[in-house]
Design a protein around this nucleic acid. Structure first.
Lengths: 126, 126
DNA sequence: ACATCTATATGTTAAATACATATAAGGAGA
DNA sequence: TCTCCTTATATGTATTTAACATATAGATGT
């Protein structure tokens, strides 16, 4: 059996929301993991996204050539691995944005249905 | 180590979008798996959602007391397992709707950021 | 008898997430 | 110097979900 090939970098499952968030932050400026973790809160992640997830995602993005990395030892404190978006990563962002829009549509069609089922405070307040 | 208890039926991960869709369809009317599969397309699932997922989800919802089931042998064709929403299932829908709204917010804050990074056809058309 | 449709169900693999922990450099203060 | 805290990156592992394949079986039409 041949494995069904996926259409884009977003993969077959359209989850992994962390990935596009990292990409867009890296589009804004090249930076390193620890700072990305702090920036992620703005993009709707809780106070502290799992560092393990972030670092692993960054390495994966690098393996997929969406980013490149290099060590920054110029600053005080431990060395930082600084990531930089590649043109491929830039393209991936555009792909992701489409998928995110589709996902929003799906979620909204659920909410619409929900509001039809439970109109305006028909009971909703739990 | 004690396992961190999750806040609601939606669980820790906020995915499993199939689950709230099944619940809302069952709120509209009690019905059976095969028909639910057909109805799911309207709620943003592709042409044919994986039957395996649907049936397993239904059994899981039953185990969690969100639905009850009984056999319907009155109709022609193979027997149907008919599912009915419970009050607990009804409550779960409200929980889910909140989580879905939150998810939409997160996705939209990504899209907003995306549009700031790539304003109005700055290149976007891939 | 055979194929086909309806209907439910299970097995198996791959992937993502959550959570825990390891490692180490550098700075502040006793 | 020794300890503690912060910064910074990384790995280990268990659980969960999704994807895909396949099994089972009643009913119906030819």
């Amino acid at each position: 059996m041949t494995k069904k090939e996926s259409v884009c970098m977003c993969g077959p499952r359209m989850e992994r929301f962390l990935e596009p968030c990292l990409l867009i932050l890296l589009h804004e400026k090249e930076t390193y993991g620890y700072e990305l973790i702090e920036s992620l809160a703005e993009l709707g992640f809780g106070d502290n996204p799992d560092p393990g997830m972030v670092y692993r995602n960054l390495r994966k993005l690098e393996k997929e050539k969406a980013v490149t990395s290099s060590w920054d030892t110029a600053n005080s404190g431990p060395a930082r691995r600084v990531y930089k978006l590649t043109p491929a990563g830039r393209q991936a962002i555009h792909q992701w944005s489409k998928h995110v829009q589709q996902k929003i549509n799906r979620l909204q069609s659920f909410l619409k249905r929900y509001n039809q089922n439970f109109p305006e405070g028909s009971e909703g307040i739990v």
